[in-house]
C-alpha cells in the first residue's frame, strides 16, 4: 500500500507542542517526525542543531525499511529498540502507528531509558491525533 498523509495546520501545531513538551524540554537536540517515504513532517530542535534533516529523513526511512526487512527474515515482525550510539550524540528511532517514524537526536546528558519513556508518551499522544 502507499502512504498518503495530509496534516492540517492545527494537527501539525499539536504535534509540535507534544514534541516540544515531551522531548525538547528533556534536553534532546533535535526531533524529526518523518513518514516512511522519507518526507519530513515536523522538525524541531533546541536552537543549536544544524543537521540536514531532509537527508537524514531519507536515510532514516531507508534504514528503517532495511532493519524491518532484517526483522522479517529472522521471524520478527519488527524490532522494538532502534538506536545508534555515538561518542557524543545518539539517534533513537520510534515507529508511530504504521506509517510514521520519530527520530530523536540526543547527547550524553540524556538517559536512553528515560528518553524511551518520553518517546512512548509522545508516541501515544501523536497516535491520538493522526
Amino acid at each position: 500500500m502507499d502512504f498518503t498523509f495530509d496534516f492540517n495546520k492545527s494537527q501539525l501545531e499539536s504535534i509540535e507542542a507534544i514534541l516540544e513538551e515531551e522531548l525538547i524540554e528533556l534536553g534532546v537536540e533535535c526531533v524529526v517526525l518523518i513518514d516512511l517515504a522519507g518526507n519530513v513532517i515536523v522538525n524541531l530542535d533546541n536552537g543549536r542543531c544544524e543537521h540536514d534533516v531532509y537527508s537524514l529523513a531519507a536515510l532514516a526511512a531507508a534504514n528503517f525499511g532495511a532493519v524491518s526487512a532484517m526483522a522479517n527474515i529472522i521471524g520478527e515482525e519488527e524490532f522494538s529498540l532502534l538506536f545508534h550510539k555515538g561518542e557524543n550524540d545518539s539517534i533513537h528511532f520510534s515507529k508511530i502507528g504504521t506509517d510514521l517514524l520519530l527520530l530523536t537526536i540526543f547527547g550524553k546528558d540524556v538517559s536512553l531509558g528515560f528518553l524511551r519513556l518520553k518517546v512512548t508518551e509522545a508516541n501515544n499522544k501523536i497516535k491520538e491525533l493522526v
Partner: peptide, 13 residues
C-alpha cells in the same frame, strides 16, 4: 505521495 505542509507552506515531491 507528495507531502504538503500547510504550516511551513512547503511541498516535498
Amino acid at each position: 505521495m507528495a507531502l504538503i505542509n500547510p504550516k511551513k507552506k512547503e511541498v516535498q515531491v
